[in-house]
Amino acid sequence: MAAARVELESLEKTLGLRGRNKLGPSRSDSAVPVLQTNNGPGLVGLTTIASHLVKVAKKEALLGSTAEESAIVQQWLEYRITQIDRCNSQEDTRVVLKELNCYLEDKVYLAGNSLTLADIMVYNGLHHIVAGLTHEEREKFMNVSRWFNHIQHCPGVRQHSASVIFMKNRLYPSVH
């Protein structure tokens, strides 16, 4: 699918790999992207290719610096494609946002204390959802908003996505 391709191209730029790879056309019936590597068979799947690109760019720290962190990164990459990308209704997105909001209450990044691939991929996946929220809703999911605002300002992450505006002051005191 075009969207996955755009996202991977954006990730390449974030990682400093300017157009070195050729992304093959996706398989006819699904949205799964394919990457033809120089040695061996093609790589299939968004997070698989993303992890591969991180290693090519020699930025392995983005996959987690300890065993625990790597595990958490893997978990969120999976969450991205199984939960966030499968939100079909208002209710689904509410559930995801609520879950994330609880999880992020005491965290700056999704895994550990620095930016990982999980942050980048979840940010990309959530972008259209968060951009569509009203200020009242952004305030309701305050931890998601704080994290999202932080990630979109991390150098190189946002690329061509529109910047989402967050109010720094509380507008809706009655919501809480």
Binding site: T134, H135, N169, L171, Y172
Partner: peptide, 13 residues
Amino acid sequence: TPNEKLLGRLVKE
């Protein structure tokens, strides 16, 4: 209407 309400909140703040 939504912008009116948002403006109201911004002014209140």
